[in-house]
Simulated assay, not measured.
Amino acid sequence: MTVIKQENKEFGIFNQMGKQVEGAFAPNSKGLSPIELLEASLGMCIVISLQRMFERDGITVLDHEFSVEVSAKKALEGPSRVERCKVAVTFPEHFTAEYKKKLIISAERACTIGNTLKQGVMIDIEETI
């Protein structure tokens, strides 16, 4: 469970371990905006999936050799929503093209956040008493 609440005039994002991230109302400011959090959720899910595959395959990847970048694009028309997410994965140079393709296909299948975004999710908003 995640809780968003205001403390000291800032909105914090908390899990059971306490405050983890500061929320922001606009992108590229102190804290993360909702779109940036969505991008981070998708990117982190892909990172976790790929990291598990590296471990399964006995491959050590150095910090500077691997990254995931996610860019979300809002729809120009219709209800306010994200229309598309572009995910760019940087792999170590020594990985073969075949292995990179296999990793991307597997990560796409394994990522819970990506699968949820593709299929949609029911959202129930209610007031607590």
Rank of each mutant, 00 (worst) to 15 (best):
G18R: 00
S67E: 10
T96A: 04
V21M: 15
M44R: 13
Q119P: 00
P34K: 06
N115L: 04
I48A: 14
V21T: 12
T90I: 09
V121M: 15
E7Q: 14
V70N: 05
A110D: 14
K19C: 10
V70Q: 04
G12K: 09
N115M: 05
H64C: 03
L117T: 03
E93P: 07
G58K: 12
V70M: 04
E108V: 00
E55A: 14
S80A: 15
G114C: 00
I125W: 08
G18P: 06
V70G: 05
L76M: 12
V89T: 03
E127L: 12
E83W: 01
A72T: 00
D124V: 12
R84C: 09
I35L: 05
K73M: 11
C85E: 10
T112C: 06
L62E: 15
T2P: 02
V121P: 02
E77D: 13
G43T: 08
G23D: 07
E108L: 05
I48C: 06
E93S: 14
H64M: 08
K101V: 04
Q16D: 15
E98I: 09
F14P: 00
G31F: 04
Q16T: 10
D124K: 14
K101P: 02
M53A: 08
R84P: 02
I46T: 13
E22R: 13
G18V: 06
E7T: 11
R81V: 07
E108M: 08
E98G: 07
Q16I: 07
M53D: 06
V70T: 15
S106C: 00
V87R: 08
G120F: 02
I105F: 13
G12R: 03
P27V: 02
A107V: 03
N15F: 05
Q20V: 11
C45Q: 04
G58D: 07
V3S: 10
T128R: 14
N28A: 11
Q20C: 10
A110S: 15
I113W: 01
N15T: 11
I4K: 06
A40H: 02
M1Y: 09
L103E: 06
K86W: 03
E7G: 02
R56Y: 03
F91E: 03
A88G: 08
C45L: 08
I113Q: 01
E65T: 01
Q20M: 13
Y99K: 15
Q51E: 13
V89R: 06
I48W: 07
H94V: 08
S33N: 08
D63Y: 00
G114D: 02
V87W: 06
R109W: 04
V47F: 07
M17S: 13
E127F: 09
V121D: 00
G58W: 07
E65F: 02
F91N: 05
H94D: 11
K9I: 05
E127M: 13
I48Q: 15
K101L: 12
F91T: 04
V68D: 09
L103F: 14
P92E: 09
L117D: 06
K5P: 05
R109D: 14
P27L: 08
Q119D: 14
R56C: 01
T2M: 12
T112A: 11
G23K: 03
G120Q: 07
F91C: 01
T116N: 10
E7M: 06
A24W: 09
D124H: 14
I59P: 00
N115K: 13
L50G: 01
P27C: 05
